[in-house]
């Protein structure tokens, strides 16, 4: 039953990647930029929850809510201050700014919390589940998978059945035409950053609960992996980010288990290169329809 347990923990890790990848892919699809500070928003969320519980002594629920609120506001503020003035700038300028914001957040955290990793408090207290003899799923894994499923369904429904969801799809496809429908591009982009950052906060809770440590670099590697997942699934596509994230987690975990734990990252990126060679737009990426 070993394979199944590796698979399940892979799905759980992949769920976290998927939640982060959603932030990358939505921002890319709608604002047409790569927000490389996204991974560091995760780290900030982790520190907010850590501080709330360890220093302020709040309950886990209050800490989680604080984390989500701070990340959401942070995402919107980053967009307003750093990216909005560059709305018509070259993509390269925006990319460099995003990397700058990423370093700013990391160094701010270094200054406040120091560089040493600290242990993350237990915020999710769910008993382990023994499915059969020898196959036990930890409570955190269970919560991760369930929370991710709920969030994904909610996000799909939001995109399909609400006005702001329709506005996001319209802006993603044709910004000018969306404006002619009366859609405000600025508020749609703000909302996108808000949702992406809120999901990042949830991801940070799940990530720091599964690997109970936090440091200013906590967000960097998962951020990059999630970006890979978004490209893997087809950047700009929401279902693509979900599938890409989960596949990436599963591949990473299975290679760790059966091939080599040192090589697992190399294998993950190798698979990405292979997929992009065969299908450059990613698994679910669509070639934009040609303008007639």
């Amino acid at each position: 039953m070993n394979f199944l347990s590796y698979l399940i923990s892979g799905i759980s890790l992949g769920s976290v990647y998927a939640l982060i990848a959603l932030g990358y892919t939505m921002v890319y699809g709608i604002a047409k930029m790569l927000n490389f500070a996204h991974g560091d928003v995760i780290m900030i969320g982790g520190f907010v929850m850590f501080t709330a519980v360890s220093s302020a002594g709040t309950s886990p629920l209050v800490a989680i809510v604080c984390g989500i609120i701070v990340c959401t506001v942070l995402g919107v503020v980053i967009e307003k201050v750093a990216y909005k003035p560059l709305r018509n700038a070259t993509p390269l300028a925006v990319l460099i700014t995003a990397i700058g914001v990423s370093y700013l957040l990391q160094n701010a955290a270094l200054l406040i919390f120091g560089s040493a990793a600290q242990s993350f408090p237990v915020l999710i207290e769910v008993p382990d589940w023994e499915i059969t003899e020898g196959l036990t799923v930890t409570g955190v894994t269970l919560v991760t998978i369930c929370v991710t499923i709920v969030i994904m369904i909610a996000l799909m429904l939001f995109m399909r059945y609400t006005k702001p969801g329709a506005a996001m799809q319209a802006v993603a496809e044709d910004r000018g035409a969306a404006q002619l429908m009366g859609v405000s591009v600025n508020s749609t982009i703000s909302l996108t950053f808000a949702i992406g950052s809120a999901l990042a906060a949830v991801a940070s809770l799940l990530l720091c609960s599964a690997y109970p440590q936090i440091s200013p670099y906590t967000g960097a590697m998962p951020g990059i992996k999630a970006f890979v997942a978004a490209v893997f699934g087809g950047i700009g596509s929401i279902p693509g980010a979900m599938i890409g994230g989960i596949l990436l987690g599963v591949i990473e975990n299975l290679s760790k288990a059966y091939i080599s734990s040192q090589l697992s990252d190399a294998i993950v990126f190798g698979v990405l290169i292979l997929v992009l060679l065969i299908k450059p737009t990613g698994i679910l990426g669509r070639k934009m329809a040609e303008k007639v």
Binding site: A166, Q169, A170, E173, D174, G176, A177, L180, R286, A289, K291, V292
Partner: peptide, 12 residues
């Protein structure tokens, strides 16, 4: 405003 080239949302 009905723009030039229609610009309907092709994917929707």
């Amino acid at each position: 405003h009905v723009p030039e080239g229609r610009r309907i949302f092709q994917q929707l």
